[in-house]
Write a protein that binds this DNA or RNA. Structure first.
Length: 378
RNA sequence: GGGUAGGUGGCAGAGCGGUCAAUUGCUUCAGACUGUAAAUCUGACGCCUUCGGGCUACGGGGGUUCGAAUCCCUCCCUACCCA
């Protein structure tokens, strides 16, 4: 079980500072949930995850089911023991893979649309590589090609074995090019799945329902209302977020207005640096995002002066740290020039150095925002 | 001295008469990435351009041909083998 305590609410926005207590320790909120899809924060050891001030992790049901399989994780005593991480852990349900391996893959889009698209996804349409049915989704494993079925029951049973502190209901994340009817039908199915998830779960893990509705106001509200009416321990806010940041905040507002204030809200998969203050002000408590870790492996460092692309040859003679204002051990030790050289030489160490720095930078940034809320500055 | 195999764009390496400014990989440069099939993907990469095209290019020089990176002659260079 979890306990959520709000310590302070902002007077100028919907932001709040709180504590999310789990049987594996307490996380301060708002907080970035560090992505550990395959039970690892890519390139880091679990000790290092602590050093970068990450307080909670999110692993992935779909990926861990394929490899190594929940039975293996369970035989190690669950995710915490398996990966030697004693802090709070979430597992995402696999609902995002319904999108990312389905329509996301077909049309090459993420959850936020970057450019205008002519196509739209209509009710009844199926993705190329998987089949979505009333009971769940038929996937084709990218590991060995075998067909694999996952629905709400399967997802919950897997998540029970994985043993995270907080688990998510199985949903369908909808595409930004899905039309109103598709999104509506999908959301209704996600709602039916939500009830099945609640009925299936036997453990005392916290279960979060995921709201959908995409860019459509009526659907966002409908979904949030419905999820709020069910006895979930908290809520995930999922689905697509339109085509720009303004509308994203709008959609968040529609959703959050309907959710009970005393339960934690997790925004799924959003967290570019510039998004963070807005989503916190909208009242989001936790959010996960691949950006700090993913961009690190692409050679990008986030700093107080903006992004730096360390692949640029022009940085090779730069003796300065990634960020002169950062107190992480990478910035205390290594130069931009060194990291740039390692990257250009295709070494693997810079991926770790950048991952370490980016997470520390994001976590420190959010720590400061928590302080600001506490001090009434935000 | 004799023999053999070669010399192609920053590098490696295809092509062996026209569709070749020249496959491909690497390098270089630019860009993308938001619940991670992601140490990945996309684009550019001789010079000039009013974007139609123009110019110079496959070791040097000469030749055959309507047409040569591709065939012939010659010179230079490289690797290996024999003396």
């Amino acid at each position: 079980m979890i306990e959520f305590k709000i310590l302070k609410k902002s007077k100028t926005s919907k932001a709040r500072v709180g504590l999310l207590k789990t049987s594996h320790g307490t996380a301060e909120t708002p907080s970035l949930v560090t992505v550990a899809t395959q039970a690892v924060v890519k390139t880091l050891t679990s000790e290092e995850i602590k050093e970068v001030k990450s307080q909670l992790l999110i692993c992935n049901t779909y990926h861990l089911h394929l490899r190594p399989g929940e039975a293996v994780v369970k035989s190690h005593g669950g995710l915490h023991k398996f990966m030697k991480w004693q802090g709070p852990v979430m597992t995402d349900s696999g609902g995002f893979q319904v999108f990312s391996l389905g329509f996301g893959r077909d049309f090459g889009t993420g959850k936020i649309l970057k450019e205008k698209r002519e196509e739209d996804i209509k009710a009844g349409q199926q993705p190329k590589f998987l089949k979505i049915t009333e009971d769940g989704v038929y996937f084709k494993s990218y590991v060995d090609g075998r067909e694999m079925f996952m629905g709400p029951r399967e997802s919950i049973r897997i998540q029970e074995k994985l043993g995270a502190d907080i688990i998510f209901a199985f949903d369908e994340c909808t595409s930004p090019i899905a039309n109103h009817e598709y999104t509506k039908k999908s959301l209704e199915k996600t709602h039916r799945w939500a009830r099945i998830c609640l009925e299936t779960k036997k453990t005392n893990q916290a279960l979060f329902g995921i709201t959908q509705g995409g860019k459509f106001k009526d659907l966002r509200i409908k979904s949030a209302e419905y999820m709020a009416s069910l006895p979930f321990d908290g809520f995930g806010i999922g689905g697509e977020f339109g085509s720009n940041k303004k509308t994203m905040v709008q959609m968040l507002n529609w959703t959050l207005k309907e959710l009970p204030e005393n339960k934690p809200r997790h925004l799924l998969g959003i967290g570019h640096l510039e998004d963070i203050p807005q989503i916190i002000k909208a009242g989001v408590d936790t959010f996960d995002c691949i950006v700090p870790t993913h961009y690190a492996r692409r050679g990008i460092a986030f700093t107080s002066e903006g992004r730096i692309d360390l692949r640029k040859a022009s940085l090779m003679k730069d003796k300065r740290p990634l960020d002169k204002n950062c107190s992480c051990s990478v910035c205390q030790t290594y130069s931009r020039g060194y990291i740039s050289h390692l990257l250009r030489a295709h070494e693997i160490t810079p991926l770790k150095l950048l991952t370490f720095h980016n997470l520390y930078f994001f976590n420190t940034y959010i720590e400061k925002l928590r302080q600001d809320i506490k001090k009434g500055k935000m």
